[in-house]
Amino acid sequence: MVVASKERIRDTRPVNPRVKSFKDTFRRLKKNKSALVGFYVLAFFFVVSIFGAIDANYGLTGISSNATNLTAKLESPSAAHWFGTDHLGRDIFIRILHGMYITLGVGFAATFLAGLVGVPLGILAGYYGGWFDTIVMRLMDVLLAFPGILLALAIVSVLGGSTINVTIAIAIGAIPQFARIVRGSTLTTKKLEYVDAIRALGARDVKIIFQHILPNIMSPIIVNTTLFIATAILTAAGLSFLGLGVQPPTPEWGAMLNDGRNYMYQAGHITLFPGMMIVIVVLAFNLFGDGLRDALDPKMRK
């Protein structure tokens, strides 16, 4: 009997809705097979990219991604060179491994930067409305009128091609997306009665925004972030392919595609492997993001 009563006490313990909703979300996510595949692929790549980053910068394996070997150029995949070699005899597998953190890093950093600017802009525009809202959102409309890659292209050609500039260029193109989504959610949330209640208690706007609005609009932000990383990676690769992004000999995947372009007919593997990696990473992010969106959608909750 004593044990039973203990059990009951444990059951009535309050569940933090944050923990609970996280658990619920994860449970729903697990039911979605494709999202789970995306998640595992991403987790795997993440670990591999950390290893690649360390190896590229501190040389654990002693193999350099830029070591040329003109006697072994354009070799097909073999036991010695898993993904073959390129026109300068560099090992493509090693290059992909060493470039992974750059590709993922640009994706994450650009999205993070965009969120850092877009989320506050969206919240302030939605919360205060008025002329601030009008000006900010019209500016966002202007940015949104350019196709993402074109805008990034223009910015990079002004700033010059480098990893940091590519990141900034992509981030600027993504700000409107964040601002719009966040503004919409803020408008919905600020009309709820608990926001009125806290205003009636005399809370300052900062408190209302950070403690009552932001925590309640996190799910659309998270979903948008995940989905945008894929787009950012794609745009970064596209810029590098055009020669405007990360500069050679950095083993960025888009730049590698560009390198292999001239040898596509003799040695297709030079373009095949970096291209395939880009596809896999982008697909994984999209699958995971879609799954996350479904899992966080309150209408799907049962």
């Binding site: 009665e193 608990y194 009125d196 209640a197 009636a200 208690l201 005399g202 009552h212 925590p215 309640n216």
Partner: peptide
């Protein structure tokens, strides 16, 4: 002044499901 004043006047809302922040105990 208004912030200080607000302790004098309070409001109870209609919808008890919307008037409490779901993330706070």
């Amino acid at each position: 002044e208004m912030r200080r004043m607000r302790s004098e006047m309070q409001i109870i809302f209609q919808d008890p499901y919307a008037s409490l922040n779901p993330r706070k105990t």
